[in-house]
Computed example of a mutant assay.
Amino acid sequence: MKLITFEKNNVQYLGLVKSNKREVVDLNKLGVIEKTMLEFIKSTTGEKLKELSQKAEGVVGEDIERVTLCAPIPVPEQDIICLGINYMDHAEESAKFHNEKFEGERPYAVYFSKRVNEAVPHGGLIESHKEIVDSLDYEVELAVVIGRDAKNVAKEDAYQYVFGYTILNDVSARNLQTRHKQFYFGKSLDGFTPMGPWIVTLDEFNHPLSLKVQARVNGELRQNSSTDKLIFDIPHVIHELSQGMTLKAGTIISMGTPSGVGMGFEPPKFLKSGDVVECEVEGIGVLKNIVL
């Protein structure tokens, strides 16, 4: 099931994309009283999702081309939890860019957070912040949406706490990242979190995941990998983090990016105004944005 947040007449609504992939059904028409995706996630069970999906097929929806998509969770309640250097090939290209020795192993996950005042929707603009950024970069990532509060979760139970998945472009200012020797500022500027185009619920996937992950810039394939190459997978991450913190329902965890980012080329291929960035994850779709 694909769930969206969409806008009409400056009002946001929750929607379900029907199986024909052409129609959107307003969840209010199916008896849903929650007004935001976060409220919906917190109050919804797997059985309720199945019931809504069946009901939606009997309802005439709106043409998906005639609604304005928002990011599925436009304003996350907390910073997004991100995985750094979670594909070995990206670890190698990152070390090369920063003139660091590549050790060839990652015994522990690298976690950082990304501030999001408002996520950028599919079709939205990526702000370039030219006054402070000279090395704007893209990172296609699978993002996990937690469905219920998770504390002390065993690895084998991890997927029971997943609501679904979306696509995230972890836009990064490499000069700020390098200057400050940490991720937070260089990845948290306004307009640096394109997300969407929707959340696809857990039941649509086989686990463990093995999904193609790709990024294109102006039609050129730059990143091309698969989630089965993650160093630390979803069960590991949920288990590890939940030992010391409660992962609240609605938490977004972005699982890291493979090689092929702009800084990995010689010379680097950083983004410029007018560039079209397409991030694709198999089973979810394509998140397309333009650099302002």
Rank of each mutant, 00 (worst) to 15 (best):
T178Q: 13
P121I: 10
K114G: 12
L14V: 10
S113L: 10
L271T: 02
E220R: 09
N99P: 01
P268L: 09
L271Y: 05
G31R: 07
R222F: 06
G244S: 14
S128A: 13
E278N: 11
G58E: 14
E240Y: 14
L189Y: 07
S259V: 04
I64E: 01
V261R: 00
A173V: 07
H239I: 05
L52Q: 04
T44N: 09
G164Y: 04
M245Q: 12
K269L: 15
G164T: 11
L176S: 09
M88I: 15
N224P: 03
L287F: 05
P121Y: 04
E278S: 11
T5R: 11
H129S: 09
S188K: 07
P107F: 06
T44R: 09
I290Q: 10
Y165N: 02
S172W: 02
G262D: 08
I238W: 03
Y111K: 01
T201G: 06
A91F: 13
A150Y: 08
N86D: 12
E139N: 08
S19T: 13
V162K: 00
V11Y: 08
G264E: 05
Y165K: 02
R66P: 00
A154T: 04
Q243A: 08
P258D: 06
G124L: 03
I284K: 04
A215N: 14
R66Q: 13
L189G: 03
L241I: 14
R148F: 03
Q243E: 15
V120N: 00
I41C: 10
D26L: 10
Y184P: 00
V59M: 07
D190P: 03
L230Y: 12
G46H: 13
